[in-house]
Design a protein around this nucleic acid. Sequence first.
DNA 1: TATTGTTATACTCTATAACTATA
DNA 2: TATAGTTATAGAGTATAACAATA
Lengths: 175, 175
Amino acid sequence: MANPLPRDPIADAQRNWERSGWGNTAAPMAAITAIMRTQQILLARIENVLKPFGLTFARYELLALLSFARTGALPMNKASALLQVHPTSVTNAVDRLEKSGLVVRSPHPTDGRTTLVELTTEGRTMAKRATAALNNEVFSQSGFADDDVEHLIRIFGSFRRRAGDFNDVDDLSTR
Amino acid sequence: MANPLPRDPIADAQRNWERSGWGNTAAPMAAITAIMRTQQILLARIENVLKPFGLTFARYELLALLSFARTGALPMNKASALLQVHPTSVTNAVDRLEKSGLVVRSPHPTDGRTTLVELTTEGRTMAKRATAALNNEVFSQSGFADDDVEHLIRIFGSFRRRAGDFNDVDDLSTR
DNA sequence: TATTGTTATACTCTATAACTATA
DNA sequence: TATAGTTATAGAGTATAACAATA
């Protein structure tokens, strides 16, 4: 977005915080701000790789989720729950993916209230190609050392469990 | 947003990735996905605290930045660079903060092209109150262990430097 | 009554392009 | 020519509320 700054703005903010009498929360503030900025950088990289495919990250995530479902189909509310996004966001994403011919909606066989989203053949191909591009251009050169990747998975796993994302224990120490 | 899931969807995705022949990138993928989700959780907490003040996170960040500037004022393009956001985002944020009486625009004394954003007295008070609320309600109970906070600062500091955010060395090992 | 999904609406932030004014 | 900032416009995601249909 711009040229490198001469100094780390987050480290500066941390020092300002300490100087302002918030010494005990300066470090968590800096960590959280760094998460925000890192997410922004990574999202930009991902969206950049997905753009040639006509996909956004939100729509890619839905395609990837469907590609891992046994039948390639999921109820709308299941998708909303698993992706942890608002139901209207799923409606929106499915609308656009359906226009692109990557998914189709179909009625649930037994529950008349629910709508199934299903991957088309084109959608499955697209998911595979986009996944390959992301792996080759983003994940395989993430900019994190292997050790740090493990740290992040552990730290954020605990955080998300404590934040109420999920319930299982899923012992990470044995993986 | 919803009830806890019975299982960690990111750990599941990591296993799916490994099963699909992306064993070498499954861990970075999981780490990056976890960053995305964690950012979403933290941003929601922050916006929730700021809402009573009529502030969004982007506008709060601008107020906080100005409150640390010596004179309480910065050129628009400096603010854009330090916050690492697009110039139009700064224009937008300043428009709204100005309407709320928290900042004012003024011409630069020597460079007729540049506009200064300056904190008003109300803006400075608001920055202090919002900062106190964030420290008390978010940062002081971040959900990260102290050790992990240090890990995150270090890991993301290296990452951001390598991503071109800033140039300084800023030896973290001595802090 | 509760649940599922859609629609309408609104409000973020972000980005590009065109433009003015100044250096 | 280059820089600073604004405007207009567009697109994205997210959220609330109201609603229809079904359980």
